[in-house]
């Protein structure tokens, strides 16, 4: 299928991009930012979106790259999934991002699709938003007015809706680098390799002396936004990790995961009804913690 016509702007600088987007915002034009285009182009081809113009940020090198900043890693919004996966900094400092990114789509899509684009698209079925939420990432956005930071907990507003205001550009994401003692896992459950996650669980677990000191759990596709499994995080503190996935009659980790679906409102679609998603959230959270806490 074929997209409807649109105008095309390729700003030469971030300032110009902000200016173009600012002008569009004030005139009320439906302008969309084009990053890698791997979600946007299929939508345009299916004529599910009719933007008046695309603002292509693809040629702004300042939005691209991974930088180790000590307590966090800064990932430029236009860094492709492939570049994220190839980054030693990502693998060593924020491995959960690497684990989840490796499950995004397929290699060709990862060559074009971007880290920031996936976030700004705010698809709750996407793999990276749950990671951002679990790690308490901070989104750095810029407009003509200047820069501001949005915590992950406030960034994902609704289905395909982020906290980005018209005229704002996501320029990068600060991903907190959790210290030693943390383990990570992204558990993705899907029907075929290409299919969206029915449910995904991003888990970061800090262990000490065989006990889970702290866990951060983000859930994919369990609501209109990614969801934090706070009930599990609270219940799992101090639980012996040795029990996770154990064969004994009583598994306290499993008990702690029983609340994984608390506060979620999972969608109903072709591949799963809400009650099944709730069940999967519990099972997969248990599995994710088991691997992350290993």
């Amino acid at each position: 299928m074929i997209p409807a016509p649109f105008d095309y702007v390729r700003p030469a600088s971030l300032d110009e991009a902000c200016q173009v987007l600012g002008e569009a915002a004030s005139s009320g034009d439906d302008v969309k930012v084009l990053a890698g285009g791997q979600s946007l182009l299929p939508l345009l081809r299916l004529r599910l979106a009719y933007p008046s113009a695309l603002v292509d940020l693809g040629r702004l090198p300042e939005l691209r790259g991974v930088e180790d900043r000590g307590d966090h890693v800064f990932i430029g919004a236009l860094t492709t999934h492939d570049e994220v996966l190839r980054s030693g900094v990502v693998r060593e400092r924020i491995p959960l991002v690497a684990l989840a990114t490796a499950t995004v789509a397929d290699p060709a899509v990862r060559h074009r699709g971007t880290f920031g684009g996936s976030m700004a698209h705010a698809d709750p079925a996407g793999d990276l938003p749950a990671v951002a939420l679990a790690l308490d990432c901070v989104f750095v956005v810029r407009s003509g007015e200047g820069e501001r930071e949005i915590p992950a907990a406030e960034f994902f507003v609704d289905y395909l809706e982020s906290a980005l205001e018209p005229g704002e550009v996501l320029i990068g994401v600060k991903v907190p680098a959790l210290g030693p003692g943390w383990g990570f896992h992204y558990e993705k459950f899907h029907r075929t390799a290409q299919a969206w996650a029915i449910v995904g669980v991003a888990a970061a677990v800090r262990r000490s002396n065989g006990t889970i000191e702290e866990a951060r759990i983000g859930l994919t596709n369990m609501g209109s936004t990614p969801v934090r499994a706070r009930a599990v995080e609270a219940a799992i503190r101090g639980v012996s990790i040795a029990a996770a996935g154990s064969n004994g009659a009583h598994d306290p980790v499993r008990d702690a995961c029983a609340g994984a679906d608390e506060g979620t409102s999972p969608p109903s679609d072709l591949h799963a009804q809400p009650d099944y998603r709730r069940h999967l959230a519990r099972v997969l959270t248990h599995r994710a913690i088991g691997v992350a806490g290993r």
């Binding site: 299929p42 029907r191 075929t192 290409q194 299919a195 969206w196 072709l270």
Partner: peptide, 16 residues
């Protein structure tokens, strides 16, 4: 029809 695209009508790939 709810399965109008290959994102909904699932054809297995090599890894499936």
């Amino acid at each position: 029809m709810l399965t109008t695209t290959m994102a909904d009508y699932l054809i297995p790939s090599a890894s499936d």
